[in-house]
Nucleic acid binder design. Structure first.
Length: 294
DNA sequence: AATTCGGGCTAGG
DNA sequence: CCTAGCCCGAATT
């Protein structure tokens, strides 16, 4: 029996501590965006010198804070909502795997849970869960023997129980087993899409009602660095009037980030909401657009 | 621009 | 049944 992994082992890793700075900066900017705070003011607000703040930020997403802000400060994501994306579902399969905006999602395999297992709330199902650092705070991951079935977030260690309960509540009858080592490889793949390949697929298990799984599968076809709206998704699913229902289903996405629910915004470009916090959605969209060179 | 309002659809209790 | 939800568009300040 190996010793239980501890969170202190994660502390020295960069992504989490960087995200803490980024998160506080984004929160400050969001509440004060009307004042157009300068980079210096934001640095002061998070308790760092301007140059240190700049350095941490660049390490986090490769972009200066100022450039990053233009993308997400005002909670408008219009730049990601290109007209030619109007029918992403078709476009995704036509484009295949080539092109600058690589459709990494097609490397992900997914399968719906059998109806029986879903109806019983996961009775008889063993789910291993654990914590790993990520660019967006502490990631809380859950996996069955078929693949990754849950991914949530916590700002710090104190938030881990809530995130765990949030995931566990989706399969109330399943047995939850703490196993950080077991989920570590999933975390490594999930947050480094460059590693995704057909040789090493990231296996996903989507557990939900039919309509929800349909919506989550559709999310997988939204390319990195792009976005769509709840209404567009509804149309693609052949239910043009179901935008709100789509929103509800998107909000229940159990494998956040990997199933990119953060790439869905309101029809006006407003970010609307996010189950794991709007700040985190801002961070993800900015991080991705920066990485996509766009 | 920024709010308000009613219509709309689905999952879950 | 009922209610709530990561909505949307038009109408109204």
């Amino acid at each position: 029996m190996p010793p239980a992994p501890t969170l202190t082992a994660l502390a020295p890793m960069e992504p989490c501590s960087d995200y803490d700075v980024v998160r506080r900066a984004l929160e400050h900017l969001t509440t004060r965006f009307r004042d157009q705070p300068s980079t210096e003011e934001v640095a002061a607000a998070v308790g760092l010198s301007p140059s240190h703040f700049n350095h941490v930020f660049r390490r986090w997403c490769g972009l200066s804070p100022k450039a990053f802000l233009q993308a997400v400060t005002l909670d408008r994501a219009r730049g990601l909502l290109r007209r030619e994306d109007a029918n992403l579902l078709d476009a995704a399969y036509e484009l295949g795997l080539s092109g600058p905006a690589r459709l990494h999602d097609l490397f992900v395999t997914h399968e719906a849970m059998s109806p029986g297992a879903f109806k019983t709330g996961g009775a008889g199902l063993d789910i291993r869960w654990g914590v790993a650092p990520s660019p967006f705070g502490l990631a809380v991951l859950a996996a069955t023997d078929r693949g990754l079935c849950g991914l949530g977030f916590a700002d710090d260690e104190a938030g881990v129980p809530d995130a765990r309960d949030d995931l566990a509540g989706r399969w109330p009858a399943a047995r939850m087993i703490r196993d950080d080592a077991h989920v570590a490889p999933y975390a490594a793949l999930a947050f480094d899409p460059a590693l995704w390949s057909s040789d090493r697929p990231l296996r996903l298990v989507l557990i939900g009602a039919d309509f929800q799984v349909e919506v989550w599968r559709a999310l997988l076809s939204i390319p990195l660095g792009r976005a769509t709206t709840y209404g567009r998704l509804a149309e693609e699913l052949g239910r043009p009037k179901a935008a709100r229902a789509v929103g509800a289903a998107v909000g229940r996405n159990p494998i956040s980030f990997v199933v990119p629910c953060h790439r869905v915004v309101g029809a006006t470009g407003a970010l609307t909401g996010y189950h794991w916090g709007l700040t985190r959605k801002r961070a993800m969209l900015g991080w991705e657009t920066a990485g996509a060179g766009g």
